[in-house]
Amino acid sequence: METATQILLLVAAAIRLATPLLLAALAGLYAERSGVIDLSLEGKMLAGAFAGAAVASVTGSVWVGALGAILTGIVLSLLHGFATVTHRGNQVVAGMAINIAMAGLIPTVAQAIFALGGQTPQLGPAQRFLNVALGNNALTFFAFLAVPATGWLLYRTGWGLRLRAVGENPYAVDTAGLPVARLRYQALLVNGALAGLAGAYLSMAANAGFSRDMTAGKGYLAIAALIFGRWAPVPTMLACLLFAFADAAQAQLQTVRILPSQFVGALPYILTVLVLALVGKGGGMPKALGIPYVKERGA
């Protein structure tokens, strides 16, 4: 009985921990499937977390707050697109630049607006995503429903086919008369919205307000989950769940005090490497990932 309760608690914790990772990893999935590496998930999440909590705190509405987070994510995605799609800049550098700039900008803006040392005010119940059913909030349901939705969009619609094609072979897409840049921008719009929501989950669901650097590396972990999941929706979800489950389990294991806390703390990462090593054989990477598309001019 005791054990059963513990396992249930563990699963519940894993689902909570997986939600922001999943939203961010799906965000990355859209961008990378279209051929744009997105290392800026961390920065977009941080900005989304702040914008969501700030807007919710000012307007008093959780939904307006969520919209703020989405729009902020999209603005950063457009910046990323401007640098990497329009001007064919290095995608990795652009992503890192956004992360670093946001790590500087967000606390500055937060301090300028609220003067609380880089925090937003505490959010009340009406400004937060509260549990709606089965002990989970709307964003968690949205995140897990987004998995089949993404699968359907990518593999069952013409837009998804074109998007995947742009990530595999933009030249062929271009030859077929389809706009490469526009497709990539569309992917980035979805990417920004989801990444913003991933941040909103942190500040408006898991916590009640924004605090400095609260993404704490989750954006990078999401990229790892995406690659682990081979850029496909369901495996990516499973990867997020695995990370989250390992994380939840280590919290439980630590309290037993058998192993040094550092080893237990590293268990999720060790486990990931082990699973990856055993499963082996990568693949699934979009072939044009990271390569800016240069339209052939009639030379």
């Binding site: 640098a83 064919r88 995608q91 890192m96 630049a97 670093i100 946001m102 790590a103 500055t108």
Partner: peptide
């Protein structure tokens, strides 16, 4: 000017010099 502003400047520099030279 605090260290956050410095980080912001670093980010802008990386963006322009590392990702936007094609501009």
């Amino acid at each position: 000017i605090n260290r956050e502003v410095v980080r912001l400047i670093q980010g802008v520099l990386i963006l322009f010099c590392g990702a936007l030279p094609s501009l």
